[in-house]
């Protein structure tokens, strides 16, 4: 079980000049379990802050966050949640396998089990042949797969992604989308991701939350009722993307 509920969340950031910046205003969000939700919006709409609030990295000034129905302040099972950054953030001094193992080290998993799970996860993303390669020896797409494996090795039920794969070129990016959908299905994960790319939102998400900027607030929540896999070139995907872009 992995669901997220935000009620009336507001956030201000202190600025250097002493003023405060209103980043989020009364945001309500409901992410049912095993669903994929995209958060889209122009820059300054507080997309990433919203994601960081769900991840517990930023505390909201007002409102409530519920994870699996439990208040975030009482939530214990942070290990079931994983976070993927825009960049791969692989540690250059570790091999692919040791980078994946990084995800398990905080959880105190024993060495033998760690090894087994790392091998299993690398195989899941199709990189079992590259376990001993250093990040600089891998291509951009492979590095993204290692980062994905690092996020998956903890067997999360909830994955948060901040503009994932946005630095990759379109072909590899679309491969990563297929990969994420396959694994989300396989592991029955709930996914919340932030993007500024409407095509990405339409291809991946079941629910799309559109934010208005300054301060960030929910303009609309729409459902994408298309079956998976979704072909980015298909006319119905195009239609959805165009209508979404028009509302931004």
């Amino acid at each position: 079980m992995a669901s997220v509920k935000l009620q009336c969340v507001s956030k201000w950031f202190a600025r250097r000049d002493g003023d405060s910046l209103h980043v989020l205003q009364n945001v309500d969000l409901n992410v049912p379990e095993k669903s994929i939700t995209a958060i889209v919006g122009a820059s300054g709409s507080g997309k990433s802050t919203l994601l960081n609030i769900i991840a517990g990295l930023v505390q909201p000034d007002r409102g409530c966050v519920f994870l699996n129905g439990v208040k975030a302040s009482d939530f214990k099972d942070w290990g079931s949640m994983t976070y993927m950054f825009q960049e791969d953030r692989l540690l250059p001094w570790r091999t692919a396998a040791r980078n994946v193992a990084f995800g398990l080290e905080a959880q105190g998993v024993k060495r033998a089990e760690r090894k087994e799970r790392v091998a299993e996860t690398l195989a899941l993303v199709g990189l079992d042949q590259f376990a001993d390669s250093y990040p600089h020896e891998l291509s951009g797409g492979m590095r993204s797969r290692v980062a994905l494996a690092r996020s998956l090795v903890t067997r999360p039920t909830m994955m948060l992604m901040d503009e994932p794969f946005s630095k990759l070129d379109p072909t590899i990016r679309s491969q990563m989308h297929t990969e994420v959908l396959r694994i989300a299905e396989l592991m029955s994960m709930t996914i919340v991701f932030v993007t500024h790319d409407v095509e990405e939102a339409v291809v991946l998400a079941k629910q799309i939350v559109v934010l208005n900027p300054r301060p960030g607030r929910v303009r609309e929540t729409r459902t994408v009722d298309l079956s998976y896999p979704r072909d980015p070139a298909a006319p119905e995907v195009h239609e959805q993307a165009r209508s979404l872009r028009a509302s931004l």
Partner: peptide, 15 residues
């Protein structure tokens, strides 16, 4: 960025 990554995995200061 790496320190932030460690934080998302809830690593301790010593880690």
């Amino acid at each position: 960025d790496f320190v932030e990554l460690a934080q998302t995995f809830r690593m301790s200061r010593a880690q």
